[in-house]
Amino acid sequence: MALIIDLNIQFTEMFLVLLLSPLLTGWVRKVKARLLRRQGPSVWQPYRDLARLLKKEVVLAENASWLFRVAPYLIFAATWVAAALVPTFATGLLFSWCADLIALAALVGSARFFLALAGLDVGTGFGGIGSSREVMIASLAEPATLMIFFSLALIAGSTQLSTIAGFMQTPEVGLRVSLAMALVAMLMVAIAENARIPVDNPATHLELTMVHEAMVLEYSGRHLAMIELAASLKLLMYLSLVGCVFVPWGLSPVGGGLARHLLAAGLYVGKLAVGGVLLALFETSIAKMRVFRVPEFLGAALMLSLLGVLLLFVTRSF
């Protein structure tokens, strides 16, 4: 019985993130538009976009290979699996043990790996520019992510996300410099990973500045839908991650009742909404930077996260 409930929760979470993610994207867009004094599209617009894309036929470049066609599904799957493993409103997910924080980072890496390959597949200049920049960004963002996870893991004594989230709710945590550094670094990385301003601009098609959009330039129809969905999922995942680690309050523990779960889910949506607003605020208040400033930005994140790890030993010896 317990298994079934757990299974239920797991699947609820899985589909919750899948369903919520376009909404979050739409929400951020909406807020940004309002901040720019525009009306902006409806928050539901992403759903409509996806539906339209799914129905359309795919226009494939003549020399696109099988990899080009398989990649969207793989990217989507990897991202979805990663997102499903992050506790959104409840800890103690059934399958959370099958991959920990490190695996999470690696799953995101897998998705990116295939995305970058897909960008190179057709053999166009733009695809290449996107892939090349993407791997450059990733090569700094990934170690930063891992370092952040290290801080968390060292503090909580575990790389299991559920355990960490549980630990973060206990008073043992206290206020730590390391955590603050990790949070800042985490935000920086999340911005870079999700191709947000100032690292990348999700809305641009200006040739020389785009990264993510350049990679997916050749995609159309359902393939593009998959990739868009994966991008939304990724944004959601990062927000959930920040939420469950840094503001874990309200997560329902293992064996919590239905009401508790519902409350937690509501709280979660609230967290996402706040996160979305903050993201939009940040994005509108800053200008996109040159591509070669990005390494410095991410380098700072990496240094910050490493410093966070090292400071752990100073503030509290184990």
Partner: peptide, 25 residues
Amino acid sequence: SSSLAAFVIHRLASKAVRRGPAWDC
């Protein structure tokens, strides 16, 4: 999940493919 996605989409949405020249902006 990837097969599921592929299956669902092919089944419920579209599976039409057209080959054309690369877009490349």
